[in-house]
């Protein structure tokens, strides 16, 4: 399966977790695609941590506004009803529990709901940006990522990389499965239509509780 098809599947499945009236922050990269797959009729308010709510689609070429960009610096639009604010207000919204769902990518996620996505010591140290605040503050944290990195499991018994946040992840959505994080560990909730429970278990480093597994709709 191509990378694009994997990403589309993940984004579509994450989209099912969103509902009308929610305030949602999508991380840079693949999580951004989730905005294309909202449930029918759902009015979702997207927050952009650089300072506004009402994040809308990419503008048509030639109509970009240099002051209207997303947290990745790309030109975007602000929908009618949007609101702009400073970084303290932006993170009061995030840290204060006013964001219903955040969707982030991960380098590693583990059985305790720990997330590592901000650095690889000695190699790449981009910084945490808003990720630590988002994972601590959002009511529900969804990790959206490919199940493995070149075949190596990214879902582990314990993260080996420096953590972004401890025990904050609620749901993991990958191209192979949907996994819930519970106090008792990881529960396999769904598998993709083109895989098997055995294949998911083999591609997962952490122990999965397997009970009433359904098939992902995509």
């Amino acid at each position: 399966m191509s990378k694009d098809i994997k990403r589309e599947r993940i984004a579509k499945r994450v989209g099912m977790e969103l509902a009308d009236g929610m305030v949602v922050n999508l991380g840079i990269g693949m999580p951004t695609l989730v905005a294309n797959y909202l449930p029918a009729g759902a009015d979702v308010l997207f927050q952009s941590e650089n300072g506004f709510v009402g994040l809308g689609p990419v503008p048509e070429t030639g109509t970009e506004d240099r002051d209207t960009t997303n947290a990745g610096g790309q030109p975007v639009t602000i929908m009618p009803g949007g609101a702009c604010f400073d970084s303290a207000m932006s993170f009061a919204i995030i840290r204060g529990g006013h964001v219903d769902v955040t969707v982030l990518g991960a380098l590693e996620v583990d059985a305790h709901g720990n997330l590592a996505n901000w650095m690889v010591p000695g190699k790449i140290v981009p910084g945490m940006g808003g990720a630590m605040d988002l994972t601590v503050g959002a009511r529900k944290v969804i990790v959206a990522m490919e199940h493995t990195a070149k075949g190596a499991p990214k879902i582990l018994p314990e993260c080996t990389l420096p953590l972004t946040a401890k025990g904050q992840v609620d749901l993991i959505v990958t191209d192979m499965a949907v996994i819930r994080v519970t106090p008792a560990g990881l529960v396999l909730q769904e598998i993709a239509p083109d895989t098997t429970i055995e294949a998911v278990v083999a591609a997962t480093g952490a122990k999965l509780t397997i009970r009433d597994v359904s098939v992902m709709p995509y």
Binding site: R95, G130, D133, V136, G137
Partner: peptide
């Protein structure tokens, strides 16, 4: 962390001795 940085700057301007945040625990 971005939200911590914002609050550290705000704290200085607002005459606070610091802020307590769960971010980074």
């Amino acid at each position: 962390p971005q939200g911590t940085l914002a609050e550290q700057v705000r704290a200085a301007g607002a005459g606070l001795g610091g802020v307590l945040t769960p971010t980074g625990v």
